[in-house]
Design a protein around this nucleic acid. Sequence first.
DNA 1: AAACCTGATACCATCGGTGGTATGTCCTGG
DNA 2: CCAGGACATACCACCGATGGTATCAGGTTT
Lengths: 97, 97
Amino acid sequence: MATTSWNDVKAARNGDSAVEAAYAAAQLAFELGEQVRAMREERGWSQRQLSALTGMSQPAIARFEAGGTTPTLPILERIAIAFDSTLSVQLKPKEVA
Amino acid sequence: MATTSWNDVKAARNGDSAVEAAYAAAQLAFELGEQVRAMREERGWSQRQLSALTGMSQPAIARFEAGGTTPTLPILERIAIAFDSTLSVQLKPKEVA
DNA sequence: AAACCTGATACCATCGGTGGTATGTCCTGG
DNA sequence: CCAGGACATACCACCGATGGTATCAGGTTT
């Protein structure tokens, strides 16, 4: 190890990673909620119909679409299946452009 | 009967996609774990170093990489940030031709 | 007006992921 | 042989997401 680089990296990020992650997750939850609402209305489904298809409760759908909670991957999978879609989760390297 | 099926199974699950979703989520968790492990080793980081960067515990990293648990979106965000990457979650239409 | 559907909110119980600690195993270096 | 690092597993406590129910507001229909 040259100059304890990972310690440097840690120190550099320690102050913002948690906050940044929380913000990013919240934003992601919001965007996913919007997308699901769009897909649902596109099909003319009510929240109850979608909740039945996904095995969720109607309140859960409402919370999710409002961005009130950060959905879990199993939930996203069920929603994806209900929409006959595929769930894609990827860690993509930030291109240095 | 051995032949049976997947057709029957698929037909039967038309109304309950819970099993399929659980399986898909587990597979997704496994693949994400593999990817994170690859990215971590690529950088020569130990689980402990990554745990420090993400604010997670080393056991949490181990469980995650082994696919033992399905990670939450905030956790994935923190890992993405630690790797200086971006997290992409999308519901893509399956559009079977 | 009443009956109905839709979506949003509140409350509570349960489940699953995580944090923390401790421990076990394997490997490498002293 | 012993010491240390790395990874895995076990146990427990806490927290967040979900399930379920009930309730409320808004709109539509009769």
